[in-house]
Design a binder for these strands. Structure first.
Lengths: 338, 338
DNA sequence: TTGAAAGCGCTAACAA
DNA sequence: TTGTTAGCGCTTTCAA
């Protein structure tokens, strides 16, 4: 059927043990033997059986990536970064979509990846403490992306200071009534990103001597529609804001649509700033806090590789920088600038 | 270390063969035995070793998904559909990013997925005939998404008629000078989507008695920037079009940006239509030909499962419907409507 | 530096 | 319906 290590061994006139050693680049194989083995492998079009190799060695050369969605920009970018680094490290990537409550329950309840992967990357998922507890005894390195938790390695941005700087940008432009447009989905289990961005927003207000107005704190389900609805809520009141900090660019887009429909001009009537520097932000001329997304994926994968070969043994929390990108959706208030 | 099938067998007081049968839902196991085995497995927190199972059975319960990018909207949507169906069929998804020439060469040259997966889905990738030839002898079912080729199963839309209908929509509005804004990347190896969309555009023009003007056939690399540049090229001439058919929504967005920068109004000065109904199309108020993306992923996975358990043995070419979605970027020409 | 041989944890005949 | 047993194709001692 398939060429096996035996075929290669016979062809190269060595034992299967030597083939195994030669092909994996292990020491104590003479150069001439190694060359002969590699040539045989190539000639016979040999591919290792990962099942056999995994069974014998206990290593799968595969890492799992778990995420609550696959179709969102953030995921694709991070995944690409992860795949890049892992493939270069000769690892495969196995996907776990744990978007639905069902899937998610199974994933943390049964931990079906246990014998399937050598390591795990968990993506931008708000984790309950039960879920973290489930993950802790896993006999493999785990890296979180977009969040952090005690005892786990992680790669993320500083959501608090990012939100503070975004809000500060609006304050610097003279705005006083600044709304928060947030993601409502995970309020119950305290989605860190969202909770921290909200916190950072409040910090900026307080530092400027402004009092957060609960009426200016609105949220909707993540995405364009949620942003759209939340913005409509803000402008359904008689004392709307002059500026809005949206927790995610994609929600800002939805907000922009609502503003346009209401006939409000941006930034003349309302300023808006997001977070991400999403691929369409430039197109939408959206002022935003840029975060390195692709690189977070690369870093996470790199970290996992280091954890795997024990170049690193202690968990680390890698915080990547964010950057204010000023575009056309933020400007001075009408009130303060003549 | 880990609980194995032996532990479960001992605990349930049966042989490992019976455990294997019971857990896999095979026939000829008494209900009481099956229940006992399942209880033991649960009690012992047993997870099968896919390596051992794969080695013994020859099946990996994994399918590979190869794509030239991970970070694009189309990929994420399709992937989500694929993952959904496969996970329900108890299959894992392994990722192969073959975006770079390097990766791509290795993938088709070595076929590293040979012993790793039971089936393969190839995504929206223009395949050279050499690459198709490399794929053909694979001893596993292969399903193509977004393209089709002799002897392979596929799921796609009819690019030709989709382009024809898009162009027809512009013609119906009275336009005569209609440009094509295309993807230049794969011209050399005849990227089907692009080539067929271009062909469909020409068909519509000819049928309407219009002569395709080479000056109105522009292209740039896929994406916002490419669309932007191609549109600039169109309006750098002294006889620009009154309407533009963009092969992809994402290129239409880029085109829209250029039009806005040039101070041209849409649709008063220029109409534009895309293909996809990308997630932002509604936001951008873009008229487009909608294609079912998530569903193409689901269908492809479904097809693969059927091929795997031999409910289906012959390749099929599934063509999914597209639909004109009229929004605000297309309207009558100024010339023809007073 | 190389080889012989004992598993790794399952599945699949075959037998009972 | 259940058990026995021989592999599946590697890796990894241990010896040579």
């Amino acid at each position: 059927m398939h060429t096996t290590i035996h075929d290669v061994a016979a062809h190269a006139k060595v034992s299967t043990a030597t083939v195994s050693r030669a092909l994996r680049g292990m020491p104590h194989v003479s150069e001439s033997t190694r060359a002969r083995v590699m040539a045989s492998a190539r000639d016979l079009n040999y591919v290792i059986s990962s099942a056999a190799s995994g069974l014998a060695s206990g290593r799968t050369k595969t890492i799992g990536v778990a995420a609550p969605f696959m179709s969102r920009w953030f995921f694709g970018e991070v995944l690409e970064g992860i795949e890049d680094v892992l493939r270069a490290g000769d690892m495969d990537v196995l996907l776990y979509n744990i978007g639905s409550a069902n899937r998610r329950g199974r994933f943390f309840g049964e931990l079906p990846m246990r014998r399937r992967v050598d390591g795990l990357i968990v993506l931008a998922l708000p984790l309950s403490s039960d879920e973290l507890t489930a993950l802790r005894p896993l006999p493999m390195p785990v890296v979180l992306v977009g969040l952090c938790a005690d005892g786990f390695s992680s790669v993320r941005i500083d959501d608090i200071s990012t939100a503070t700087r975004a809000t500060q940008h609006l304050i610097d432009l003279g705005h006083q009534r600044i709304a928060l447009l947030g993601d409502s989905r995970y309020e119950s289990i305290a989605f860190r990103n969202s909770a921290e961005r909200r916190y950072g927003y409040r910090v900026a207000l307080m530092e400027a001597g402004l009092t957060p107005d609960p009426a200016l704190d609105v949220s909707g389900p993540f995405g364009l529609a949620g942003g759209s609805a939340a913005m409509a809520e803000l402008f359904g009141t008689d004392n709307p804001p002059t500026a809005v900090f949206a927790e995610f660019d994609e929600m800002a887009y939805g907000g922009l649509r609502t503003l346009r429909k209401l006939g409000l001009r941006v930034p003349d009537d309302v300023s808006i700033i997001g977070v991400d520097d999403h691929e369409m932000a430039d197109m939408m001329d959206l002022t935003t806090m840029r975060q390195p997304v692709h690189d977070q994926g690369r870093q996470a994968a790199q970290l996992l590789l280091e954890l795997l070969d024990e170049r690193r043994t202690e968990p680390v929390d890698i915080v990547m920088p964010t950057e204010l990108v000023v575009r056309g959706t933020t400007g001075p208030t009408r009130g303060t600038t003549p």
